[in-house]
Simulated scan of single mutants.
Amino acid sequence: MGTEPMTYEEAARILDPETNLEALAAYAGDCEARQAAIVEACRMGAIALRAMPPSEPLTAEQLRRMHFERVWFVYPPQYEGDSGGCEEGVVLYGKLYSIDTLEGAGFEEMLLDAGSGDDPDRPSGNYQVFRRIAGEAAG
């Protein structure tokens, strides 16, 4: 719109189908400026997407180096018609914990018993661990 650089929030508003009409209204009557804003928003979106961690399964070595990081457990289908599932987790001192398991547990007690988490070298079930779910925004 002006000479100010576009912020990531402005770019997101232009790219978001829920807010793009409102965001682009500021460029009404100036097709060249509107096109430039869309191109800049796309450029900024591409930069943000490329900066996101890949959505590939984490290795046991990567998990051992992690501490206090959010992850996702992705489970394969168990029977015909089952699409599999996923749940949020956290890695503490290289051990895997399901958020569902931690709910209601005292945080201090959990840290004192850090050995009770799943060991990446000896998982308790059939699952893969990801930093994010494919399509999820980084954050």
Rank of each mutant, 00 (worst) to 15 (best):
A48G: 15
Y79A: 13
A25P: 08
Y27T: 00
V71E: 01
Y97T: 02
P76H: 11
F130M: 10
N20M: 12
F68K: 08
N126Q: 14
D113W: 00
L102E: 12
Y75H: 02
G125L: 00
F73W: 04
G45L: 09
P53I: 04
C86M: 13
P57S: 04
A137Q: 12
C86V: 09
E103G: 07
P54I: 14
S55H: 01
P57Q: 00
D113V: 03
A36Y: 03
D100H: 00
A114N: 07
M52D: 14
A37I: 11
F68I: 08
P53W: 08
G81N: 01
K95E: 07
R64L: 02
G106K: 07
L21P: 02
I38A: 04
S98Y: 03
E136C: 09
G85D: 12
G84C: 01
D100R: 01
A28V: 12
E22I: 14
E88W: 11
D113S: 04
F73A: 11
T101M: 14
P54Y: 03
D82E: 03
V71F: 02
T101P: 01
H67A: 05
Y127R: 02
L49G: 13
P54H: 06
C31A: 12
P76R: 05
M110Y: 04
P123E: 01
D113P: 00
E103W: 09
T59W: 00
R131G: 15
E88G: 11
L24M: 12
A137D: 15
E88P: 15
C86Q: 11
L96S: 04
A137Y: 10
R122G: 05
I99D: 13
G29C: 02
S55W: 01
M110H: 08
C42K: 09
Y93D: 15
L102T: 08
G94N: 12
Y79G: 03
P77I: 02
